[in-house]
Simulated scan of single mutants.
Amino acid sequence: MHTLSKHALRTPRRSNLALTLAVTIAVKCLALYGLWYACFSHPQTKHMLLPAGQVERHLFAIPAARDSLPNK
């Protein structure tokens, strides 16, 4: 009866794991690209222009104070 060393037994399993991981990562990358392409690659309007000053004021505005009582 022929006995295999521990190294010979691990090599196919590691190769199979590496292949499985590579295929899984490739499929996930393709799925993420597909979602990006479907949802974010095309603007809603072709000639959408926003004034930079208005965008800056909106993004950097200090939030208004609430007129409610603090929680007890």
Rank of each mutant, 00 (worst) to 15 (best):
H2M: 11
T3P: 03
L4K: 05
S5W: 01
S5G: 10
S5C: 07
H7W: 03
H7A: 11
H7D: 12
A8E: 15
A8L: 05
R10K: 12
R10N: 10
T11D: 06
P12N: 01
P12W: 00
R14K: 12
R14E: 12
R14C: 08
S15W: 02
S15V: 05
N16R: 09
L17W: 04
A18F: 03
T20Q: 13
L21M: 07
V23W: 01
I25G: 02
A26G: 06
V27Y: 09
V27L: 15
C29W: 07
C29D: 14
C29E: 14
C29A: 15
L30S: 14
L30D: 10
A31E: 13
A31S: 13
L32Y: 09
L32A: 14
Y33W: 10
G34Q: 05
L35Y: 05
W36T: 01
W36Q: 02
Y37I: 03
Y37H: 12
A38Q: 08
C39F: 12
C39E: 15
C39T: 14
C39H: 11
S41L: 03
S41F: 01
H42K: 10
H42P: 00
P43D: 04
P43L: 02
P43K: 00
Q44M: 09
Q44F: 11
K46M: 14
K46I: 15
M48N: 13
L49F: 14
L50Y: 11
P51D: 15
P51E: 12
P51R: 06
P51Q: 09
A52H: 05
A52P: 12
A52L: 11
A52K: 04
Q54S: 11
Q54N: 05
E56M: 06
R57E: 14
R57D: 13
L59E: 10
F60L: 09
A61G: 04
A61M: 09
A61E: 12
I62G: 00
I62L: 10
I62P: 00
I62D: 12
P63W: 01
A64I: 10
A65V: 09
A65K: 04
R66N: 13
R66P: 07
D67G: 15
L69I: 10
P70N: 03
P70D: 09
P70R: 03
N71H: 08
N71K: 08
